[in-house]
Simulated assay, not measured.
Amino acid sequence: MKRHVAHWAMAPALAATLAALPVAAETAPGTIAFDGGAVAASLTGAPGDAAAGAKVMTTAALGNCVACHELAAMPDVQFQGNIGPALDGAADRWTEAELRGMVVNAKMTFDGTMMPAFYKTDGFIRPGDGYTGKAPEAELPPVLTAQQVEDVVAYLLTLKE
């Protein structure tokens, strides 16, 4: 006699198996491997979310890319900047690795650029701890998380001419 097990009955075993699988570790800011400014490997091992990337790009407390870059793909976003290159068509001009490298630290690609490094924690001058004028007592966190970098890259890859 064959026993039929309902699929829902296997769910706890499947959940336990998935929980035991290793999770890709996030790449720490100081350990990023640049290749001529490009960063080939994902910082998270997980795909970015383009919608979340668009939010990072337009939120002042996050990346706020539109403060310096114009983006015709977002006509409703006011006060777009013009000191950085327009981002429309970015996916046609740069590879995923090049875009990731620019978001992580554009100075590795464009020496002397005004663009800040969004995933870096040392080797540059920053304001004091919480704008107190005092030196920070610990390492400052990067501006964006590794996942936010991947989200921005995912959005930039949607920008084709």
Rank of each mutant, 00 (worst) to 15 (best):
K2D: 05
R3M: 03
R3E: 08
V5Q: 05
A6S: 07
H7T: 13
H7N: 15
L14R: 12
L14Y: 07
A15V: 12
A15L: 12
A20I: 02
V23S: 13
V23M: 04
A24S: 12
E26L: 02
E26F: 04
T27G: 06
A28E: 15
P29G: 11
P29M: 08
G30N: 12
T31I: 05
T31F: 03
I32L: 10
A33F: 00
F34T: 10
F34N: 02
D35Q: 15
G36W: 06
A38K: 07
A38L: 06
A40N: 05
A41R: 15
S42H: 01
S42R: 08
L43C: 05
L43Y: 00
T44H: 04
A46D: 12
A46K: 14
P47T: 14
P47W: 03
A51H: 01
A51L: 06
A52H: 08
G53L: 03
G53Q: 04
K55F: 06
K55C: 03
K55D: 09
K55Y: 01
L62Q: 15
N64F: 09
N64D: 14
C65H: 01
A67E: 11
C68S: 10
E70M: 01
E70D: 10
A72T: 12
A72H: 13
A73Q: 06
M74R: 07
D76H: 09
D76A: 13
V77D: 05
V77H: 08
Q78W: 02
Q78D: 15
Q80M: 04
I83N: 15
P85M: 13
P85G: 07
A86N: 07
A86G: 13
L87Q: 10
G89L: 00
A90Q: 14
A91R: 00
R93V: 01
W94P: 00
W94Y: 13
L99S: 09
M102W: 11
V104F: 06
K107T: 15
K107A: 14
F110N: 13
G112K: 12
M114D: 12
A117F: 00
A117L: 09
F118K: 02
F118A: 03
Y119L: 05
Y119F: 13
Y119P: 01
K120Y: 02
T121S: 00
D122G: 09
D122T: 15
F124T: 15
I125T: 15
I125M: 06
I125E: 06
P127M: 08
G128R: 08
D129Y: 06
D129P: 03
G130S: 11
G130R: 13
Y131S: 08
T132N: 00
G133C: 01
G133L: 11
G133D: 09
K134H: 11
A135E: 13
P136F: 07
A138D: 14
A138M: 10
E139T: 14
E139D: 12
P141A: 13
P141M: 04
P142E: 03
P142A: 10
V143C: 02
Q147N: 09
Q148V: 04
Q148I: 06
V149D: 02
V149I: 04
D151G: 07
A154F: 04
A154H: 11
L156H: 05
L156P: 01
T158F: 04
L159F: 02
K160Q: 12
